[in-house]
Amino acid sequence: MYRYILNRILMMVPVLLGVSLVVFSMVYIAPGDPARIILGDTASEEEVQELREEMGLNDSFFEQYGRHIKNVVTKGDLGTSYITQRSVTTEIMDRWPTTMMLAVMSVILATLIGIPTGIISATRQYSVFDNLAMILALVGVSMPNFWQGLILIIVFSVNLAWLPASGFYGPIYWILPVITIGTSTAATIARMTRSSMLEVVRQDYITTARAKGNKERVVIINHALKNALIPIITVIGLQLGRGLGGAILTESIFSIPGLGKLMVDSIKARNYPVVQGGVLFIAIAFSLINLFVDVLYAYADPRIKSQYSRKRSKKSKEVCHE
């Protein structure tokens, strides 16, 4: 098992290098001269050229990229923000926990709502609950989350004045953003749980479980659910990653000082080092989350687990005792 994890982490390295190359290239071809951006429009052309030399902007693409990678790998230095002149790493670390909290809370809320809904829908297929739930789920998936945020603000902040529309100073400020991000996640989880349960419930071993004389509730929870939840784990993990993406727009709407808002603001302001560093950081986080999900999946499904641990013993046992 540990070999598998190590293997995956090793595989992550070239992918992340690739990501850094892709991001660096995008920043490189993006319009705008970084030196000009830092100095502003009033600076003279000479000053701009001087800064360009200083920043090494006139070197070749590969020289610049090489320098960048060296900095990242050896010093963890992602560059300096054009606007605040602080280290990009610091900027990211300041805001990272907020975004993470948002994403995690959204996924937790979504799971708490989505899984029971999916189970009930599956066991009461075609009932009123099922139809209603699935329509709502589809609406939830179809609603653009930035629009949902705005509507929630209109209803709960402007009209009802129950909840605040911006800022992040306490738990009450979390309610609307978490709902915004969590809605489509909950909808996706509900749909997937439903279809996974439906597939599992058709399997022969469920009939076996019933033929043993089990109560239906036991059949669903002990036999069906255990199998149905395995693919759902992957979905939940992916949604955590999506939550990071969803946070990007939501933070802007609710003025939450997180990583997402930082990214949006930086892109608009052409603050490229922050963008570069931010995307790389998010990519690393995303990859780690995916790895974690895969490992969890392997643990949950005994068929896969045995593929990765103690490969030797399985085969020999079979031959001897047949």
Partner: peptide
């Protein structure tokens, strides 16, 4: 490795 929203934005 990059969330699709962020990729499109970038």
């Amino acid at each position: 490795a990059i969330p699709s929203t962020l990729l499109a934005i970038s």
